[in-house]
């Protein structure tokens, strides 16, 4: 029902804003994370601005890069995360964005603007933030779980689900060793390998797409997953009438990865003006709430947060409480990316 309410309010908003001159229908080609932008939002934007919006999806930053690099793809708007933005800026693959065309930029929580990967917001605008934390089924796991090392204990052998993401895994090992998660050198990687060699054999399932499934199904008792997935589990806990679920989402005390999914315009985009218009549209408080309803990651839109229901704001997976140690990823060299991949492949391939 949420969606329908949104459509009503959004269409009211669409009527209020003067329609774009309908002389020639422009197209906006969006290449975005899997269903990250709800269809209703896209439809409303298309209608209000008389634009044809085409959407293609990808499931990881690296997939996006692969398709961009293979060529023949002319997109106007992409949705990279922080470390990819840093890399694309360095390689000159992004157009600059004119914030003057995006008045709604002011709605963003200052925490999520002028971040290290794009200090002046010249190339990107934060879309949603998120983090990687621990989700525990308290019905099955009685001990308190606070750190990565708490998760990877022998007694949880083959009861653990983790993200299938090599760089994440290495960053957990580094954090538990007290090394910064961006401090990826040959020596540190060697140390991380020693830790992961003990951890990885305990894992039952690697899943980046839907790790919540194994937790809710009872195949795994604890896991390290995206906070949006954790938030969905917490929502399900409240909703499910038939059975009692008891999950909790915690951020490891050693520190965790915070990712910043952003909107950016790739070089060679044909329709930068419309892309900017879309960015502005998506920063509307109401629109951002519609996105949060489907994807309960950390809403970066301060004005949008004001519209959330109290129980949504109380979801500690979406909105971390206190002041946890969260770091963004820095760009790494291709050699290091290759080295990380080799470490994890070797360990899995025993």
């Amino acid at each position: 029902m949420n969606r329908r309410q949104f459509i009503l309010t959004a269409s009211a908003a669409a009527l209020a804003t003067p329609a774009f001159a309908a002389a020639k229908k422009e197209t906006l080609n969006i290449f975005c994370w899997s269903e990250y932008i709800p269809q209703s939002v896209i439809d409303q934007f298309a209608k209000a601005n008389n634009v044809k919006v085409n959407v293609e999806n990808y499931a990881s930053n690296e997939e996006m890069m692969a398709k961009l690099q293979a060529g023949s793809s002319k997109y106007d708007l992409i949705q990279p995360s922080e470390y990819i933005i840093e890399e694309m800026v360095k390689d000159g693959k992004l157009e600059t964005i004119d914030l003057a065309n995006i008045p709604n930029f002011k709605n963003l929580d200052p925490k999520f603007t002028k971040m290290p990967h794009d200090p002046e917001n010249k190339y990107s605008v934060t879309w949603m933030a998120g983090n990687v934390g621990i989700c525990v089924n308290k019905a099955k796991v009685k001990d308190p779980i606070k750190t990565y090392a708490d998760v990877f204990q022998d007694k949880f052998k083959k009861r653990i689900v983790v993200l299938d993401d090599n760089r994440e895994m290495v960053s957990w090992a580094l954090a538990s060793l007290g090394i910064g998660i961006n401090d990826i050198t040959k020596e540190n990687l060697e140390k991380a390998k020693g830790v992961l060699a003990k951890w990885l054999p305990l894992v039952k399932l690697y899943d980046s797409d839907s790790p919540k499934t194994a937790l809710l199904n009872g195949d795994c008792d604890l896991g390290i997953i995206w906070n949006g997935e954790g938030a969905k589990i917490l929502q399900e806990m409240k909703k499910s009438k038939k059975r009692k679920l008891d999950f909790e989402y915690v951020l490891p005390t050693e520190g965790a990865h915070m990712f910043i999914d952003s909107l950016a315009v790739p070089k060679g985009a044909k329709n930068k003006a419309v892309a900017e218009k879309f960015i502005n549209y998506i920063l509307e408080p109401k629109v951002s709430v519609a996105v949060y309803d489907e994807f309960p990651y950390t809403l970066a839109n301060a004005e949008g947060c004001k519209l959330l229901k109290p129980d949504q704001l109380a979801n500690n997976a979406s909105f971390p409480v206190g002041d946890p140690k969260l770091d963004t990823f820095k760009m790494i060299s291709p050699d290091m990316a290759g080295a990380i991949d080799k470490v994890v492949t070797d360990l899995k391939n025993k």
């Binding site: 997939e63 890069m65 692969a66 290759g338």
Partner: peptide, 13 residues
């Protein structure tokens, strides 16, 4: 898996 990881995964090789 390995090939996928090289082409559209994190190894990017």
């Amino acid at each position: 898996n390995v090939i996928q990881n090289q082409i559209s995964g994190q190894a990017r090789d």
